[in-house]
Design a protein around this nucleic acid. Structure first.
Lengths: 353, 353
DNA sequence: CTGTTAGCGCTTTCAA
DNA sequence: TTGAAAGCGCTAACAG
């Protein structure tokens, strides 16, 4: 009894109409404009619906022009705890509007982004929330023009007319590197997955700004270690090998997210490198477990659930009559814990005089 | 150019047919049975498709009887790292079959399960993968009878004809408690979110079996602390308060997942309770960061990505001609690390003689 | 190999 | 208020 009747095939409006002794359109009215139907008739129809085991056919409704009730989201990796929580925020906001969320992960591959975008378009989704890998926004702008609302996630709208929900990544990168500079680090490795994805590029930009502000030369201080995407198995081992092979060896590693920081912590531990005394490590996101790591992770906090919620909110708003596209900007915060400390040997090089 | 043409409205098969100078059905054939169309014609049609900016209309296809290309999954909490990875496994497997995944979280509320099930049914999804909160499987069985394939996740099929992918939770609970008993613990608190959800109930069952095997009385050894669902804010604080108030105080806390274990570790630390010396803590899942926690977490490993992948695989298989429903069982493993040790005061009570 | 036609289940005019 | 009829975009069944 939990989900309609059992056993018998489920019927459509036609069967319901027959069972209730009314016409199809009355049934439709009960569904879409209940107030227009006599209470008694309505009751009879509703009874018939559960008797017949009626389930609305979304495809048919959509074909007739009803707005779809599924929304798509495309992120870099839904299994990353950061995105997982962002997505959860979306899901909950969408649930309020009786919408479902399709989750797609690109693993930072442009081709996968394209593929999912196409599939979502074919599904006729109500809209898409995208954290793009692809640099050019043309495809998304075009999609939007064709009537599929697009909300950018962690990507500024630039000159486009799209909605966007972002966190100030330039500021985040700056905060992180300021902290490391203040501790005395002069060789800092940024461990990232892409130098093209805007949010990540912005953090690098902020990092350089911080270095410049300190009167140093960004290229002398900042190194970039680029890892392969989430799918690669030994990505952290390779990244740490790379990190340790740099000369002079960096004294701090700034990871592009906390999950990566965990990977780096693990590989450093395996190699017997003490954190933070031999190597400071920073994360990014401040996920729940960051404070319980060994050592507790210094990181940059950014909102997650709230970010997804806001993105979904904007997306839903686009259905409304006249709606101005807008950009929302959240602010990150530096969270200092135990995984960073002054470098062992101060100065640019080991003092040799 | 990335996603079809720009600016102009997108056309359907009709427009494509016109543009290519062929009939609608030829276009349809190019789409569905390419081999039946002359190569030259096909090319012309394909050109027309991109010229017109053709995007297949999924709703119409579905209405005509094509199998849907979206699958639903309902889990307890998609933002929990365990489920996030399970879901990612599903997503990747489904992508191979050109399917999309809708993710739904119940937060352990039966009513939300019902709601999502209904919505997915209305969407006409290809099938659903469900980690149910609801005890009775009737609703799912009925859904399955009505032609919507159902795969149970982390739930045994019992006497039903459903497919299921599970991990041996009785074994998992047993392994965990055996370990604690061997260390000498005689008061063990299980921190859980539900005593009804089968996977969690099974672990409790395994725990009791382990105690019985050791010649002890389960009710003397095992306490249950039930937390509210994922949405509640101070759940861990409250749970730990509860834990510490028990008399005699348990010497070990067995948490129902690693995320919960992190919460418990944090709250214990806040209260100045040393882990493991004053309180042993175990998790469940062995997520990536478990080994980097402070202290490194003793836990029970279970597959995640693989679990989701397998579930999606079974679901897709149901589309095939004659397919036997089957149950897949994975095995968990005990992973001993640093968050457990012998209790400070051996014996049932503080020795007082 | 290509063109014509009917209809999936629903909503929505319109007339009663 | 309710009932009859048309058609959303696509596909499958035929006839050419």
């Amino acid at each position: 009894m939990a989900v309609g009747n059992d056993g018998s095939r489920r019927g459509g409006v036609r069967q319901v109409a027959a069972a209730a002794g009314v016409s199809m359109s009355t049934v439709s009215n009960v569904l879409n404009r209940p107030d227009v139907v006599a209470a008694e008739t309505r009751q009879r129809v509703e009874d018939a619906m559960s008797a017949v085991g009626f389930v609305r056919n979304g495809a048919a409704r959509q074909l007739r022009g009803a707005p779809s009730s599924v929304v798509g989201c495309i992120v870099l990796d839904s299994s990353n705890i950061f995105f997982a929580e962002v997505v959860r925020g979306m899901e909950d906001k969408l649930a309020q509007a009786n919408c479902l969320l399709v989750t797609c992960s690109t693993d930072v591959q442009p081709q996968r982004e394209l593929h999912y975008l196409r599939m979502l378009d074919e599904q006729g989704v109500r809209g898409v929330i995208v954290s793009p890998v692809i640099g050019k926004l043309d495809g998304l702008v075009s999609l939007s023009r064709h009537g599929v609302p697009v909300v950018l996630l962690d990507r500024r709208r630039g000159k486009t007319e799209l909605c966007a929900v972002t966190v100030d990544n330039v500021r985040g990168g700056r905060l992180a590197v300021q902290h490391l500079l203040e501790l005395g680090h002069q060789r800092i490795a940024m461990v990232t997955v892409s130098t093209e994805v805007e949010s990540l590029a912005d953090r690098a930009k902020g990092a350089r700004l911080a270095i410049r502000d300190a009167g140093l030369a960004p290229d002398d201080v900042l190194l970039t270690i680029r890892m392969p995407g989430p799918a690669a198995p030994d990505r952290y081992a390779d990244a740490v090998d790379h990190l340790l092979a740099l000369t002079p060896r960096p004294t701090a590693a700034l990871c592009f997210n906390d999950t990566a920081a965990v990977g780096v912590l693990r590989e450093l531990r395996r190699r017997g490198i003490a954190v933070p005394t031999e190597m400071s490590v920073m994360g990014y996101d401040d996920v729940h477990f960051a404070s319980e790591l060994s050592p507790a992770l210094t990181t940059v906090r950014q909102p997650r659930y709230q970010l997804g919620w806001a993105a979904a909110e904007l997306l839903l708003a686009e259905s409304d009559a006249r709606h101005r596209h807008q950009e929302l900007l959240f602010q990150p915060d530096l969270v200092v814990r135990a995984s960073t400390c002054p470098p062992r040997r101060p100065g640019r090089r080991p003092a040799s005089s």
